[in-house]
Structures are given as structure tokens and as C-alpha cells.
């Protein structure tokens, strides 16, 4: 951890970066994201297994809006999120300095985008076994039961949109949920409205989600809504051999095509 602090302090003091995003101790031995602007604040920087929030989120929030260069303590998930944001033209290499750190906390040092891509490729990717097991369990249900399962699961959603707020890929200024002409997604959090909202969110994340799991952690009623995106991650991998967050020039699944895409379902 000392190494990370040394790098951060040096970056801030040489004014290479104007802000460092990392974690600091929160109340009652919890952790919280921290935004250091002065070299000596960096002392408060910590990293332990509780630091799982996806810090890449803040790169698109107002806090970083006017900062010309930001350093960010990035575990593999954050690194992949940054690469995916870069491929969607949301983050410029010259405005972000990645300070790589492994999940266990071992410093990897400053990574430019090329190195970040190499680093991301080496990290374990794709779904965890228990995620796949969950997906298979749901998929195995008969269709009626599956539909009722999801309707019931989503019925507890209160449309607080925490999932949207916690996802680095949901960076739209005006989200489509807020358009009312036409009212694509019903505002109320009844079963129908919730179902449509989560269908749209899953479609928007198809081929873009890097499976960091922030959305389900942020959900106050613990809906396994990440499973929709995880299932699509597998699908995009099988069908289009594409995976998000590995290359800054990656074309998202739904805005590219090949003429050998499967069409056995088209008459």
C-alpha cells in the first residue's frame, strides 16, 4: 500500500494530476471513496478487501468534470471499466492516470492504456461459477415459472435507480427513463414498469457490462439484476466472441455485425 501512496504523493506534488481517487477509512471500520487533491492528504489512502466499489464511476461524475488530469487507484474491475469507457469515447488517455492495484492490494504501478489492456487480459474474466449456476437454475425453470420468478423478483424494485447510479457504464446525461414523450418506461414502480425498466437496462448493457457486480450490491432490496447482464455477457461471448473492457478500440456488440451472425430463427 506504501508504494501506492508514494506514487500518488509524487503525482500530486509534481502537479501531474490534480486529484487522486482512492479509498479512505469510513465510519465504523467501513471504507469510502476518497478524492485527494493535496499530497499530504494521501496518507489517508488505504486498501483492503472491503474496497470493492467501482471507482471508475466517478470519472464521469461532476466531481471530475473540470479536473484536467485524474489519477485513480484501479483494481482490475476499475481498469476494465476505464478501458470500456475509453472505447466509448468517454475517457481520454491524457486525462486519466491509472495506478494499477491487484484485488489483493499489490501495487502494479502506473499503467498507460496499452499496459492497462495487457493487465486486463491477464486478470480472471467472465462469470464466477456461482453466477453461472444461478443462471442455469433460472434457465432450467419452465417458461411460465421463469416469467413469474422475474416479475416477482422485480416487483420489490422501488425505482430508486441506485443500480443506474452505481454503474460506470450508465453515464448518460439524460437517461431514457426520464423521457416522457413518448413514455417508454412507466414511471411507477409497479410490476410492469419495473420489468420494462430492467429489460431496457439489460439491453443497454449488452456487450458493455464487465461484470463488476456493483449494481446488485447497490440495490437496496438485493434484486439479482446483475444476472441479466451476466447472462448477456456469456451470450455475447458465445455468439460474437466479443468481451467488454479489454480493448480501447472495441466496437460494442449492438453497434457492429458480421454477415455470419446466426439467423436460424428467421423464416
Amino acid at each position: 500500500m506504501e508504494e501506492i501512496k508514494k506514487i500518488a504523493k509524487q503525482l500530486l506534488s509534481e502537479n501531474k494530476v490534480q486529484m487522486v481517487i482512492g479509498f479512505e477509512k469510513g465510519t465504523a471500520n467501513k471504507v469510502r471513496p476518497a478524492f485527494f487533491t493535496k499530497p499530504d492528504d494521501v496518507e489517508k489512502l488505504i486498501y483492503n478487501e472491503a474496497c470493492i466499489h467501482n471507482l471508475a464511476l466517478y470519472l464521469k461524475k461532476d466531481i471530475c468534470h473540470h479536473v484536467s488530469n485524474v489519477a485513480i487507484v484501479a483494481n482490475p474491475n476499475v481498469v476494465r471499466s476505464i478501458i470500456q469507457l475509453a472505447s466509448e469515447n468517454q475517457v481520454k488517455e491524457e486525462k486519466v492516470t491509472i495506478i494499477g492495484i491487484s484485488f489483493e492490494g499489490k501495487s502494479i504501478g502506473i499503467l498507460d492504456f496499452k499496459a492497462a489492456e495487457e493487465f486486463a487480459k491477464t486478470q480472471p474474466k467472465g462469470l464466477k461459477p456461482e453466477d453461472r449456476a444461478f443462471i442455469e437454475k433460472v434457465q432450467a425453470m419452465p417458461m411460465e415459472e421463469r416469467f413469474n420468478y422475474w416479475v416477482e423478483t422485480f416487483s420489490t424494485c422501488v425505482k430508486c435507480y441506485a443500480c443506474r447510479a452505481s454503474c460506470p457504464m450508465c453515464y448518460c446525461g439524460k437517461c431514457n427513463v426520464e423521457t416522457n414523450n413518448p413514455q417508454w418506461i412507466p414511471v411507477a414502480s409497479h410490476k410492469y414498469g419495473n420489468l420494462e425498466w430492467h429489460i431496457m437496462r439489460a439491453m443497454h448493457l449488452a456487450g458493455r457490462c464487465i461484470n463488476c457486480g456493483e449494481c446488485t450490491r447497490a440495490c437496496p432490496v438485493d434484486i439479482p439484476l446483475n444476472m441479466l447482464s451476466y447472462m448477456l455477457t456469456d451470450f455475447v461471448m458465445d455468439e460474437f466472441h466479443a468481451e467488454a473492457g479489454l480493448s480501447a478500440t472495441y466496437a460494442p456488440a449492438l453497434s457492429s455485425y458480421t454477415n455470419i451472425d446466426k439467423e436460424n430463427f428467421i423464416k
Binding site: E88, N89, Q90, Y171, C172, G173, K174, A251, P252, L254, S255, S256
Partner: peptide, 15 residues
């Protein structure tokens, strides 16, 4: 300061 709801992801440009 928003100028447009477009986020500049340019998926439209690629299609």
C-alpha cells in the same frame, strides 16, 4: 452547458 442529451459515445456513427 449540456448542449445535447447526446453522450458522445458515437455508436450511431459506427452504424
Amino acid at each position: 452547458p449540456q448542449y445535447s442529451s447526446c453522450t458522445g459515445c458515437f455508436m450511431c456513427q459506427s452504424v
